[in-house]
Amino acid sequence: MRAAKALSYPAFGVGEPAAEPGIRAERIEKRLGGNDVLRGVELIVRPGEILSILGSSGSGKSTLLRCLNLLTIPDRGDIWVHGEKLAIRAASQHGGPAGILDHRQVRRVRASMGMVFQNFNLWPHKTALENVTEGPVLVKGIRRGAAAELGRHYLAKVGLSDKADAYPRHLSGGQQQRVAIARALAMEPQVLLFDEPTSALDPELVGEVLRVMAALAGEGRTMVIVTHELAFAREVSTRAAFMHGGLIEEESPPQEFFSSPVSGRLRGFLASHR
């Protein structure tokens, strides 16, 4: 069966995971509110790859994405980011929660992975520019002046040069999401994580955000995109994965993924989303 298992393609850097770039997640398990949300997921994201993750609601897509930068701490399993293994304590059999062992490492790793959320999550008391510059200033210690320049550069990149001084409340959903993308970009991360970035938008605003994302994809960035926009995923991804019941059920290059899916569930999913 083609690509039904995550590791069915040749692993890179065999025997020397410390040198491998990108992200590797092994046997990720997570239980939330009495549900086994992730049940041993295997995931590899290589540099320059654009991985789309699809699946029905509740299949564990967001949870998996959040495990990659430890906004959610997996109960079990290992994660390597740019060859560095994340120091986490597994959950105990008796219900003791999983924990972060090296907070400094986690902050460093988070700073190298930009995340864009479904609900934008801008800070309403800060202007668009401030939303973009606070990360570089506070985390990277960049001076305010230089950060403002950086911020304007990335606001221009998402087409919002004229909105630098606007507060989020004065921006449309699409504009807010583009500010959020600029905020992630300003950290100059090695990987971008998107969790349904257009799901909270009015239909007429989806296009402007997808166009920005497609442009980023064209720059050869490494991106993981959880999305329900099938046409977009088909067009920009280099690989697509289908999640079901806390596992990746099928993954393959977009041509095969969308044209000749193997699993019946994926076929059903694709048919119902046409």
Partner: peptide
């Protein structure tokens, strides 16, 4: 979460 995702303390 947005602040944490940027690596803020």
């Amino acid at each position: 979460e947005a602040a944490r995702s940027l690596g803020l303390h």
